[in-house]
Simulated assay, not measured.
Amino acid sequence: MKNRSTSLREEIEEMIAVGQLQPGHHLDETELATQFGVSRTPIREALIQLASMGIIDMRPRRGAQVATVSPQQLVEMFEVMAEFEAMCGRMAARRMSKSEMSDLEAAHLACKAASNTDDTDDYFYQNEVFHKLIYQGSHNEFLSTQAMNLHRRLRPYRRLQLRVRDRVKMSFHEHDQVVAAILAGDGEQAAQLLRGHIIIQGERFADLIASMNKLKAAH
């Protein structure tokens, strides 16, 4: 069972992921405690957890604020994420059990249903399940943990990326190829496809930055 600080961390993390708390936003412990109806202690513990994940910055005498990521940092983080995903996919194609493959196919169908309704938020959550199953399917706990940590760090940006026109449909098509490669046991193909699925460059990066700027302007 989750303790209060962990559930608070997840709620605040979700607010950051959906853009309710923007990069650079100051996080006031007293305001958050009032908002969630708790004392400042679990709020402080939740903020420390978020700081350890790199999602917020905590500085002496300046308090906590949502971490700001530069375009260059964002590119670098997506580059590393792409390699993590490639490694997970390569191992998952060799190591996934039949039941794990069935779970992956079920998650893929859930992504399809969300894609067909054009519900980007629903697709975002189903997409998270899909990728987490690939991490776990690598049967390399260290790699899976590192991939999940960076995945969480990039949540706000992965979510924004899905709001770019036609990105959900393209993402599902890419998933389709990844699933086929994993089910066929083709680790190299799965790795190559997942690397391409995650990496952002050229037009996709420009679209992501434009989406970020548009969200900032709306706030």
Rank of each mutant, 00 (worst) to 15 (best):
A114S: 14
T117I: 06
T117F: 04
T117S: 13
T117M: 06
D118W: 06
D119N: 15
T120L: 01
D121Y: 11
D121L: 01
D121G: 02
D122G: 08
D122T: 12
D122Q: 12
Y123I: 01
F124S: 00
F124Y: 10
Q126Y: 08
N127F: 07
N127S: 14
N127H: 15
E128I: 14
V129P: 08
H131V: 08
K132H: 13
K132C: 04
L133I: 09
L133T: 08
Y135W: 15
Y135L: 04
Y135C: 10
Q136F: 09
Q136I: 07
Q136G: 07
Q136C: 02
G137R: 01
G137A: 00
S138T: 07
S138A: 15
H139T: 01
F142L: 08
F142H: 08
L143D: 01
S144I: 00
Q146S: 03
Q146F: 03
Q146H: 05
A147Q: 06
M148D: 14
M148C: 08
L150R: 06
R152K: 14
R152H: 13
R153W: 04
R153K: 15
R155H: 12
Y157N: 01
R158F: 02
R159P: 02
Q161C: 02
L162V: 07
R163I: 02
R163M: 01
D166F: 14
D166T: 14
R167A: 14
V168W: 07
K169S: 03
K169A: 05
S171E: 08
S171P: 00
F172L: 15
E174T: 13
H175I: 02
H175C: 04
H175N: 07
D176F: 07
V178M: 08
V179R: 12
V179G: 10
V179Q: 13
A180Y: 11
A181K: 11
I182N: 03
I182L: 08
A184H: 09
A184L: 07
D186H: 14
D186T: 09
G187N: 08
E188V: 00
E188L: 11
Q189Y: 01
Q189N: 07
Q189L: 14
A191Q: 12
A191V: 08
A191D: 12
Q192K: 11
Q192G: 09
L193V: 04
L193M: 03
L194S: 06
L194G: 02
R195H: 15
H197F: 15
I198M: 08
I199S: 03
I199P: 00
I200V: 15
I200W: 13
I200S: 04
E203D: 12
E203C: 00
R204W: 04
R204G: 03
R204Y: 04
R204K: 09
R204D: 11
A206N: 07
A206Q: 09
D207V: 00
L208W: 11
L208M: 11
I209G: 01
I209Y: 02
A210E: 11
S211N: 02
M212V: 10
K216R: 04
A217D: 06
A217I: 12
